[in-house]
Design a protein around this nucleic acid. Structure first.
Lengths: 137, 137
DNA sequence: TATGTTGTAACTAATATGGTTACAAGTTGT
DNA sequence: ACAACTTGTAACCATATTAGTTACAACATA
């Protein structure tokens, strides 16, 4: 299962996108909406910052979006907080002296990549704006 | 990340589909191809059996496919070994007194379900036969 | 009856995850 | 200058998941 960092990241970005008073947007305030520890928020915010989705300044309260919500895809968010990780794990060291074992890894790699691409294509279709629309419809 | 049980399950099914001598298909022999412990094989085989993909008899060596490889989709295999589990985790207990916190779970549930459906649709397209074709092309 | 198998329970080590404490470094207002 | 507050990170902890392992009951077969 994909961990909840994606979920929390979308929550954070939704708050940033919809809160006018940037001064209010402290990690502690965000944490009280997400219901977690402020450090968890700062940790994930740090990843969103490295992915160039948000901006912030050490010492000064608040975070700002770097792009329009319609230009932030869920894949952007997914990749920001997910290690550059394959969706499916493949068992290692299958027996190369077995006809199946010899080719199973490359075969599964092909298959799983196409599945992962299908998922990522869907994540690309949906933007933060779509989430905001659903949140406030 | 989706654990390696899906990967191992496909390996097991490929061996069953392509090994004529059923007597050879012991959990120990399969384990030597997968490169793991026989109990791991029996554990996953047990799940495949419950999903009605393979058959076996306690005490007698071997496993048999219940369906044709072309009629076993990768989604069948995925669901057999994966707990009936959502692809994306959603953080719990967001603050209901916050406009975002109040609706984030139902919104993310919608969004993530559509993404999961895209992945499952792709898994449905590919069958064990397709894997066999790639293994022995 | 001896040998070998499947099926499972139970335990273990390794790893990932989210929560937490602590603190350095920065900003701001007085 | 300094007090109060913030972000950014390192470090640690408890928990859960995972795969590997040992052990053994139940069954089949020569």
């Amino acid at each position: 299962m994909v961990n909840s960092r994606v979920s929390v990241a979308i929550h954070i970005l939704s708050l940033i996108a919809t809160t006018n008073d940037s001064n209010q947007l402290t990690s502690e305030w965000i944490a009280s909406s997400v219901n977690t520890n402020p450090v968890v928020i700062r940790r994930i915010s740090s990843q969103l910052k490295k992915a160039n989705l948000i901006a912030s300044n050490a010492g000064v309260a608040g975070y700002q979006l770097v792009k329009e919500p319609k230009d932030i895809t869920l894949l952007d968010i997914y990749k920001a907080v997910q290690a550059p990780e394959e969706l499916f794990a493949i068992h290692d060291n299958p027996n190369p002296e077995c006809a199946v074992g010899k080719k199973i890894q490359s075969t599964l790699d092909n298959v799983f990549q196409s599945v992962q691409r299908a998922m990522e294509d869907k994540l690309t279709e949906e933007t933060l704006q779509d989430v905001l629309d659903q949140l406030f419809h």
